[in-house]
Design a protein around this nucleic acid. Structure first.
Lengths: 239, 239
DNA sequence: TGCCGTCATTTTGCATTCATTTTCACCAAA
DNA sequence: TTTGGTGAAAATGAATGCAAAATGACGGCA
């Protein structure tokens, strides 16, 4: 879904049916943040852009709504699901459980092809870090963890894991601001690779859960700071 | 979604929009197994039954397809996703990770209302067992575990957990045949309740994971037996 | 100036229509 | 009998049409 680098040609991505294609493109648009959170999704504009009528677009919107990326307001159209800082905790809490399972299974089942791809991504992460390229780092990080989830050989796990990653993806802008997290994140990745190479499943599971916990806490902290510097939380407007 | 007892009035269940209503009813129909796995879903019949046109029905079908309960074949209609014994393992594998988290969190966070509801369901489970009422037992079991997931206070967790429960639900007929599992299942539930009452989170997590593992293994064994007694697996037909 | 009610415009939700594709009964030929 | 072709009927996928609701501009009035 998300390319490592920042160049997305908004490609069909080999979708067989029009429905899959529309869902895929709509997902890309939402994940890339083209429409700000809370903004109303313009049916007519997207229809024109995709060259389709409203029927298939609305079908795609219902699917995205079921996933939670879109919120449907009866008779009032679809909006990009608003940013909700309180949603972050539960997502990371759940993701932590999956990370544990991913660590256990990946250590047991990752094959050579998966290991090669993971090593490559890990290497690229290091390079992105040295370039201080946050955008590349974030995307490579997404891809790395997705590869690890796929290396478990449990497609259902990989699929649920990606759904959670996508939920978080929209919040990445907050944590990107604080790039000292990037350095510690990479250090955690080094430890993850050590455990993975050694096929140390308990260790790998723990490392991944810890990595998840720290990432989540950093993100929650970042949002708290944003809220502090931007105290429009209550009913004050003029102040 | 699923009522403890076997009587479903196919109720609207307080859905605000027509879309939610259709999705809910369609889900009930699929979960109740009204249409056999692999059977084609008759659009026209359901439209007449719900008193709606094809547009909202098809929107609901796309949503159910995204969840995996329905499979969409291009130009060839929707079918109830066929039974696939190889899908059971991955589902229980993933569910195990969630059970662990549910145990940890429920022990910490279950409030009085949740505890009361869980005790009641546990009691009803015992009664269903003594009546050898497999149908009631299975439904109460579903509701019990769903309550426990909700008791974690993490709605996302409860939602993902229910999605997994629904995936398994269609396979219950296989394991229902072997009701010695019911007795051991209830014994496991007794231990689960002991750990829950004691708020012993590590113990509860372990008990739940073990319960999940044993249930999954029983189901896989049941399917293996079915396959053995019914060896149409390969390309033999006359034999 | 600020607030509220009215009406035209836009948007939404669903039904209906239409072009394609598939299905299947029927029949001819091997 | 079995295989393969033919065409009518049915089903699918998507566009269009239409009634109901929401939006927003306008003007009256305090």
């Amino acid at each position: 879904m998300i390319r490592p680098a920042g160049n997305e040609p908004e490609a069909p991505e080999s979708a067989a049916t029009l429905h899959d294609l529309v869902v895929g493109q709509l997902r890309n648009i939402l994940l890339e943040g083209e429409f700000a959170a809370g903004r109303r999704i313009p049916e007519a504009e997207l229809c024109a852009r995709f060259g389709i009528s409203r029927t298939p677009l609305r079908e795609a919107l219902k699917v995205m709504a079921a996933e939670g990326l879109v919120t449907l307001r009866p008779n009032r159209g679809a909006v990009v699901t608003p940013i909700d800082a309180t949603a972050i905790g539960p997502i990371f809490e759940l993701k932590g459980a999956l990370e544990g399972l991913i660590g256990t299974l990946a250590a047991l089942r990752a094959n050579d092809a998966a290991m090669t791809a993971l090593e490559e991504h890990h290497h690229a992460l290091g390079e992105a870090l040295s370039r201080r390229d946050q955008n590349a780092y974030t995307r490579l990080n997404y891809a790395f963890h997705q590869l690890l989830a796929q290396a478990t050989g449990n497609p259902l796990l990989a699929q649920n894991y990606e759904a959670l990653q996508q939920k978080i993806w929209r919040y990445r802008f907050a944590v990107n601001e604080f790039d000292e997290r990037l350095v510690t994140s990479y250090q955690e990745h080094e430890h993850i690779m050590v455990a993975l190479r050694a096929r140390a499943r308990l260790d790998l599971a723990e490392r991944l859960q810890e990595h998840n916990r720290l990432t989540g806490e950093a993100m929650i902290r970042a949002f708290a700071e944003i809220a502090e510097h931007n105290p429009r939380s209550k009913k004050e407007k003029s102040a």
